[in-house]
Design a protein around this nucleic acid. Structure first.
Lengths: 139, 139
DNA sequence: TCCTTTATGCGAAAGATTTGCAAATACAAA
DNA sequence: TTTGTATTTGCAAATCTTTCGCATAAAGGA
């Protein structure tokens, strides 16, 4: 995903392409792991002169637009990553804040079964799995 | 799970069986869905004269003891339910705060695959799946 | 019953996130 | 290119969730 593609994502969502919005999106995309607002602030406050509220507002608009995915690992604050279409699976350490993203494991049939059993939902958009454990460093 | 069994759970965890702690645990167990602190406060403030901080502290101690499971659905606050040993799977509405618990769908082989792929974790304790969609009432 | 540890109430504090409002900016239309 | 309007931003304050300090109260083993 290069800058132009990200710009298009924003445009197609009906949002305006501002320097700050693009910077926030770029920073999320560049991160190897789902990022927190705190981390984004660290990254962006240096280069851009960007307010905390602006970061929050952009994360929110990009999330509502379906461009970013918002994740929660019971750390008391949200994490964001690019909404790729494929679901997000991670293992989370219960002692430290380590997260490991695991790719290539599908649970699509389980999701199908869940929808069949559901009374309130006909279909679903995305899902996330948080597997909890204690990482090797904390054992 | 009756009152006596819950008392024993607390005792076995090395915690003291207080009126408030038991009331919090009972209220969580009685709820049909994972409850929030707000809901617990509503329920408990009427009967017991129980402080907000006490609810938080008891939820925390029961969670650390492995009696309660703490869940997050990106609603900005935690939900709690009894830690049953079997994992917790739910579908969450992205528009309203509806949650539907789905039982009887296992993803244990997917979890196994995830551990095999993991570099940072050797094994895991629990997991949760949040499947997001828009519920029939919100469509 | 006594003693020590743990739990509670209360108020204050911390941390994450949202909001109101005026000024600045994006971008479509002229 | 200029203009006009809706959107975005900065700033400060507010809100919401959760935690903490400390003195008092209660639990439960000796």
């Amino acid at each position: 995903m290069n800058k132009e593609e990200l710009k298009n994502l924003i445009k197609e969502a009906g949002l305006r392409v501002t320097i700050h919005r693009l910077a926030v999106l770029l920073a999320v995309v560049k991160a190897k792991q789902p990022v927190t607002v705190y981390e984004l602030t660290e990254i962006l406050r240096k280069k851009e002169n960007i307010d905390q509220a602006t970061i929050y507002r952009n994360l929110s608009s990009l999330h509502i637009a379906g461009i970013l995915r918002r994740l929660d690992f019971n750390h008391g604050h949200a994490h964001y990553e690019l909404e790729t279409g494929t679901a997000s699976h991670q293992i989370v350490c219960g002692k430290c804040e380590t997260i490991e993203k695991i790719e290539g494991v599908s649970i699509d049939n389980a999701i199908q079964k869940m929808i069949q059993k559901s009374k309130k939902f006909k279909n679903t958009t995305t899902h996330s799995i948080e597997v909890y454990g204690v990482c090797k460093a904390c054992v």
